[in-house]
């Protein structure tokens, strides 16, 4: 069953077509990876799907409903959320509080009951605390629960961001370079964790530079280069595709390509 469907998505910044006519789909429990050289438009594509950028062209369908141009908070309520390559953490809150915020949609209570701190409110808070701790334990952050998030290492914050997203019980989860900046052991852990999540039926969309990881855990791979989809398919198909190999390793006119990439990087940087 198709959970997320992306059709002909495109956006231009000034005259530059950062992403052009990209489409693919993801089902429940499937891990779909988006790969491509630096500046290929992977993060821009993610930003459009998750409502951070408004696409110029194309559609995003979530469970058959058109959610193009929906704001991130609405998408979160509909079961789609994401993590960021450069982290979006509540730095001044504790680690536990960060996860508890993720539960807030489920924690809806009456304003009056909250104000009076009625037993129902207290019970709900205690339950949420417990669930948040359970999530933290899964990524070995339970010992750091009471620390201010800003003090944690980059790798730990990456894991924290993922469990905060999980607190919302999403149906579709977009992970932007979850293993970036993590060491080999941490990468392997995240790797196993993502596979575990997919096994519970969450559709996962992944941008990752670690090719070994991508090839190991993906069900389906979409390859972008210069904002266009140049290939898609199963990991072993994609890794043998000559176009993909040339995008990564360069061809005879590689120097020109590199120049283009630089331009694109600058352009996406300017708007990001």
């Amino acid at each position: 069953m198709t959970l997320l469907q992306v059709e002909g998505l495109g956006i231009s910044f000034g005259g530059l077509r950062a992403v052009n006519d990209v489409g693919f789909s993801a089902s429940a429990g499937e891990i779909v990876s988006v790969i491509g050289p630096n500046g290929a438009g992977k993060t821009t594509l993610f930003n459009m799907i998750s409502g951070v950028y408004l696409p110029d062209r194309g559609r995003v369908m979530l469970d058959g409903q058109d959610v193009t141009r929906f704001e991130p908070h609405l998408l979160a309520r509909m079961g789609m959320t994401r993590t960021f390559q450069n982290l979006q953490i509540f730095q001044d809150m504790t680690v536990l509080e960060n996860v508890i915020v993720g539960f807030h949609l489920a924690e809806r209570g009456h304003l009056l009951a909250d104000l009076l701190a009625l037993p129902g409110t207290k019970r709900r808070s205690a339950e949420v605390r417990e669930k948040a701790m359970a999530l933290l334990t899964r990524v070995r952050l339970d010992k750091a629960a009471e620390q201010v998030a800003g003090n944690l290492s980059y790798g730990a914050l990456k894991r924290l961001e993922i469990v905060r997203a999980l607190a919302m019980s999403p149906r579709v989860l977009l992970l932007d370079e979850p293993a970036a900046g993590c060491n080999a052991v941490e990468t392997e852990e995240i790797d196993a964790f993502i596979a575990e999540l997919a096994a519970t039926g969450i559709g996962i969309l992944l941008v990752e530079h670690d090719m070994k990881m991508v090839m190991r855990i993906s069900n389906h791979i979409v390859v972008l280069d210069h904002g266009e989809k140049i290939a898609e398919g199963k990991p072993d198909e994609v890794s043998r595709n000559p176009e993909v190999i040339s995008a990564y390793l360069g061809t005879v006119d590689a120097e020109q390509d590199e120049q283009d990439e630089e331009d694109e990087k600058e352009a996406t940087h300017a708007v990001g």
Partner: peptide
């Protein structure tokens, strides 16, 4: 009381702390 005891008040604080992260967890 509003900022420390109610979900709405906490949503305001979360937005103050990190707007984008607040949107990601479904805060309008």
């Amino acid at each position: 009381v509003f900022f420390t005891k109610t979900l709405t008040g906490k949503a305001v604080l979360a937005t103050a702390n990190n707007r984008l992260a607040a949107q990601l967890v479904g805060i309008n």
